[in-house]
Computed example of a mutant assay.
Amino acid sequence: MTEDNTQTLTIGDVDVIRVVEWARPFAPARTLVPDVPPEVWEDNRDVLAPDHWEPETDRAVVALQTWVVRSAGLTVLVDTGVGNGRERPGNPLFHMSQGDLPGRLARAGVRPEDVDVVVNTHIHGDHVGWNTHDVDGSWVPLFPNARYLLPAADDFHFGPANNYGGAVRPDDRLTYEDSVAPVHRAGLATVWDGMYRVDEHLTLESAPGHTPGSSVLRVASGGERGVFVGDLLHSPVQIAHPECSSCFCLDPGQAARSRRRVLERAADEGELVIPAHFGGTGVAEVRRVGDTLMLGK
């Protein structure tokens, strides 16, 4: 896939457009998912390379992307990437980056004013960045007519009431203040907890662990199903090894439990799994063999 490519798929009566900002080798494989044994990557080379793993450098390949979901007359965005000109001293790849998500959305037929709902699966800098843009030196919502759906546990954890994630990472304060707080000030934020129905086809559900408020967006339409899983998965190796969390998970044990629960349901109900950062086609089918999960065929 080229970095300026888009893909489309349908889930019943719901249309999905994948808008990719970039896809590239990101981090050493065993830094990204530390508990996956080295032989797992090599034994699954035919599945992982080149879309999810670069064997020559032993780096995991990931994508930065946003999903446009057209459902029941609504235009919904699932996660909004890094944004432009953000101070992110803890992450050189994202610090003061210059992307073009608005341009890519426009080429996919989506203008900012067309967006009805923005779903932030969780509040990490690479999922909320284009919530806002710079207008005359101030951060303001990019999507002026949208409801921004924010998980309550994340809004609290990363917000000022909790000293921006407990003041562990400066990037958390910066992310909240430039990408989340302006949405609150504009009166566009809807903070939800547990479960939230977006429309007749779309439902948000809590799946904590990666962050306290990590969530998944379920799609059910015309007898077909899908689930946007955010950062529950960073690599296909976690499908066969759901006990292995990424290095970014704040509570790895809880993340593993959420991951297994979501993946087992996907296998049992035939849900198409749509992670935030998969390369290749960006989606995965999961099947179950006994107690083992694996990529479907």
Rank of each mutant, 00 (worst) to 15 (best):
P242E: 02
P242R: 11
P242F: 04
P242W: 03
P242Q: 03
P242T: 02
E243I: 01
E243R: 08
E243G: 10
C244K: 03
S245N: 03
S245A: 15
S245H: 03
S246H: 00
S246Y: 04
C247G: 05
C247K: 14
F248C: 00
F248W: 14
C249N: 12
C249I: 00
L250P: 04
L250D: 14
L250T: 13
D251W: 08
D251S: 13
P252E: 10
P252T: 12
P252V: 08
P252H: 09
G253D: 14
Q254L: 15
A255V: 03
A255P: 02
A255G: 14
A256T: 08
A256P: 12
R257S: 02
R257D: 05
S258R: 13
R259C: 02
R260V: 09
R260M: 07
R260H: 11
R261P: 04
R261T: 12
V262I: 15
V262N: 12
V262E: 08
V262A: 10
L263C: 11
A266L: 08
A266G: 09
A267T: 05
A267H: 08
D268V: 03
D268M: 03
D268Y: 03
E269R: 13
E269P: 00
G270T: 01
G270M: 04
E271N: 00
L272H: 09
L272N: 09
V273F: 04
V273Q: 03
I274H: 07
I274S: 05
